[in-house]
Protein backbone atom coordinates (compact mmCIF):
# COMPACT_ATOMS: atom_id res chain seq x y z
CA UNK A 1 0.00 0.00 0.00
CA UNK A 2 2.78 2.41 0.94
CA UNK A 3 4.76 1.62 -2.23
CA UNK A 4 1.61 2.17 -4.23
CA UNK A 5 1.13 5.59 -2.62
CA UNK A 6 4.75 6.51 -3.26
CA UNK A 7 4.45 5.62 -6.92
CA UNK A 8 1.19 7.54 -7.21
CA UNK A 9 2.76 10.57 -5.51
CA UNK A 10 5.78 10.30 -7.82
CA UNK A 11 3.58 10.19 -10.91
CA UNK A 12 1.46 13.14 -9.74
CA UNK A 13 4.60 15.14 -8.94
CA UNK A 14 6.10 14.30 -12.32
CA UNK A 15 3.06 15.55 -14.21
CA UNK A 16 2.78 18.65 -12.04
CA UNK A 17 6.41 19.60 -12.71
CA UNK A 18 6.10 18.79 -16.41
CA UNK A 19 2.96 20.97 -16.52
CA UNK A 20 4.64 23.90 -14.76
CA UNK A 21 7.70 23.52 -17.00
CA UNK A 22 5.61 23.53 -20.16
CA UNK A 23 3.58 26.51 -18.97
CA UNK A 24 6.74 28.50 -18.18
CA UNK A 25 8.27 27.54 -21.51
CA UNK A 26 5.18 28.62 -23.46
CA UNK A 27 4.78 31.80 -21.42
CA UNK A 28 8.33 32.92 -22.10
CA UNK A 29 8.50 31.64 -25.66
CA UNK A 30 10.10 34.20 -27.96
CA UNK A 31 8.98 35.22 -31.40
CA UNK A 32 10.25 33.24 -34.36
CA UNK A 33 13.82 34.15 -35.21
CA UNK A 34 13.17 35.49 -38.70
CA UNK A 35 16.91 35.53 -39.40
CA UNK A 36 17.11 31.76 -39.02
CA UNK A 37 13.66 30.87 -40.29
CA UNK A 38 13.28 29.50 -43.80
CA UNK A 39 10.89 31.62 -45.86
CA UNK A 40 7.59 29.98 -46.79
CA UNK A 41 7.48 32.03 -49.99
CA UNK A 42 10.00 34.01 -52.03
CA UNK A 43 8.20 36.68 -54.06
CA UNK A 44 8.69 40.17 -55.50
CA UNK A 45 6.93 43.14 -53.88
CA UNK A 46 5.17 43.75 -57.20
CA UNK A 47 3.72 40.21 -57.33
CA UNK A 48 2.79 40.24 -53.64
CA UNK A 49 0.87 43.50 -53.84
CA UNK A 50 -0.83 42.31 -57.03
CA UNK A 51 -1.89 39.05 -55.37
CA UNK A 52 -3.66 41.03 -52.60
CA UNK A 53 -5.13 43.53 -55.02
CA UNK A 54 -6.50 40.80 -57.32
CA UNK A 55 -7.95 38.60 -54.59
CA UNK A 56 -7.53 39.66 -50.99
CA UNK A 57 -9.27 36.60 -49.54
CA UNK A 58 -7.08 34.12 -51.43
CA UNK A 59 -3.88 36.09 -50.77
CA UNK A 60 -4.74 36.36 -47.07
CA UNK A 61 -5.20 32.59 -46.84
CA UNK A 62 -1.94 32.00 -48.66
CA UNK A 63 0.44 34.58 -47.19
CA UNK A 64 -0.77 35.95 -43.85
CA UNK A 65 1.27 34.78 -40.82
CA UNK A 66 3.74 33.19 -43.22
CA UNK A 67 7.38 34.15 -43.53
CA UNK A 68 7.98 35.88 -46.84
CA UNK A 69 11.18 36.91 -48.50
CA UNK A 70 10.38 39.82 -50.77
CA UNK A 71 12.49 41.67 -53.30
CA UNK A 72 11.84 45.18 -54.52
CA UNK A 73 12.80 48.83 -54.79
CA UNK A 74 12.81 51.10 -51.73
CA UNK A 75 10.31 53.95 -52.07
CA UNK A 76 10.73 55.64 -48.67
CA UNK A 77 12.21 55.14 -45.22
CA UNK A 78 10.55 56.44 -42.04
CA UNK A 79 11.33 56.10 -38.35
CA UNK A 80 8.32 56.03 -36.10
CA UNK A 81 7.59 55.67 -32.40
CA UNK A 82 10.60 54.42 -30.35
CA UNK A 83 12.70 54.64 -33.53
CA UNK A 84 10.91 51.74 -35.17
CA UNK A 85 11.86 51.62 -38.82
CA UNK A 86 9.22 51.48 -41.56
CA UNK A 87 10.43 50.91 -45.12
CA UNK A 88 7.99 51.24 -48.02
CA UNK A 89 8.74 49.04 -51.01
CA UNK A 90 7.35 49.93 -54.42
CA UNK A 91 4.75 47.82 -56.15
CA UNK A 92 3.27 48.21 -59.60
CA UNK A 93 0.52 50.40 -58.15
CA UNK A 94 0.73 54.15 -57.46
CA UNK A 95 -1.67 53.92 -54.56
CA UNK A 96 -0.59 50.86 -52.67
CA UNK A 97 2.79 49.36 -51.78
CA UNK A 98 4.41 46.93 -49.35
CA UNK A 99 5.22 48.43 -45.94
CA UNK A 100 7.83 46.60 -43.89
CA UNK A 101 8.26 47.28 -40.16
CA UNK A 102 11.67 46.17 -38.95
CA UNK A 103 12.77 44.55 -35.71
CA UNK A 104 14.30 47.01 -33.26
CA UNK A 105 17.83 48.30 -33.78
CA UNK A 106 17.75 48.18 -37.56
CA UNK A 107 19.87 50.99 -38.95
CA UNK A 108 17.88 53.29 -41.29
CA UNK A 109 21.14 54.20 -43.07
CA UNK A 110 21.09 50.74 -44.67
CA UNK A 111 18.19 51.83 -46.86
CA UNK A 112 18.18 54.46 -49.56
CA UNK A 113 15.25 55.35 -51.77
CA UNK A 114 15.66 53.76 -55.19
CA UNK A 115 17.93 50.90 -54.09
CA UNK A 116 16.88 47.27 -54.46
CA UNK A 117 16.57 45.18 -51.31
CA UNK A 118 15.61 41.70 -50.16
CA UNK A 119 13.61 41.69 -46.93
CA UNK A 120 12.38 38.74 -44.86
CA UNK A 121 9.45 39.13 -42.49
CA UNK A 122 6.00 37.99 -41.42
CA UNK A 123 3.02 39.06 -43.50
CA UNK A 124 0.21 40.62 -41.41
CA UNK A 125 -2.26 41.23 -44.21
CA UNK A 126 -3.64 44.05 -46.35
CA UNK A 127 -4.92 47.44 -45.19
CA UNK A 128 -4.25 49.95 -47.97
CA UNK A 129 -0.88 48.32 -48.51
CA UNK A 130 0.51 44.86 -47.84
CA UNK A 131 1.89 44.99 -44.29
CA UNK A 132 4.96 43.05 -43.14
CA UNK A 133 6.22 42.82 -39.55
CA UNK A 134 9.33 41.61 -37.67
CA UNK A 135 11.35 42.27 -40.80
CA UNK A 136 15.08 41.87 -41.29
CA UNK A 137 17.23 43.02 -44.19
CA UNK A 138 18.63 40.03 -46.10
CA UNK A 139 20.44 42.00 -48.77
Amino acid sequence: MKTYLKILLGVVLFFALAGIGTALYLFNMQHKDIGKAKPDFVITAVDLQKAFEDNEVAATAKYVKKILEIEGEVESVKTGEANVLNVTIKSGSDLSSVICTFVSATDPAKFTAGSRVIVRGECSGFLMDVLMNNCILVK
Binding site: K65, T101, S124, G125, L127, L131, N133
Partner: peptide
Protein backbone atom coordinates in the same frame (compact mmCIF):
# COMPACT_ATOMS: atom_id res chain seq x y z
CA UNK B 1 2.65 48.35 -30.45
CA UNK B 2 1.42 48.93 -33.99
CA UNK B 3 3.48 51.17 -36.28
CA UNK B 4 1.39 50.60 -39.40
CA UNK B 5 -1.60 52.82 -38.69
CA UNK B 6 -3.28 54.40 -41.72
CA UNK B 7 -4.75 57.77 -40.77
CA UNK B 8 -6.42 60.64 -42.61
CA UNK B 9 -7.24 64.11 -41.29
CA UNK B 10 -9.33 66.69 -43.14
CA UNK B 11 -8.49 70.08 -41.65
CA UNK B 12 -11.43 71.79 -43.35
CA UNK B 13 -14.03 69.60 -41.65
CA UNK B 14 -12.11 68.07 -38.73
CA UNK B 15 -12.88 64.55 -39.96
CA UNK B 16 -10.46 61.90 -38.76
CA UNK B 17 -10.18 58.27 -39.86
CA UNK B 18 -7.80 55.70 -38.38
CA UNK B 19 -7.45 52.13 -39.54
CA UNK B 20 -5.25 49.27 -38.32
CA UNK B 21 -4.72 45.60 -38.92
CA UNK B 22 -5.12 43.70 -35.65
CA UNK B 23 -2.32 41.33 -36.69
CA UNK B 24 0.10 44.28 -36.87
Amino acid sequence: DNNQVAAVLDISTGDMVFQVLIKS
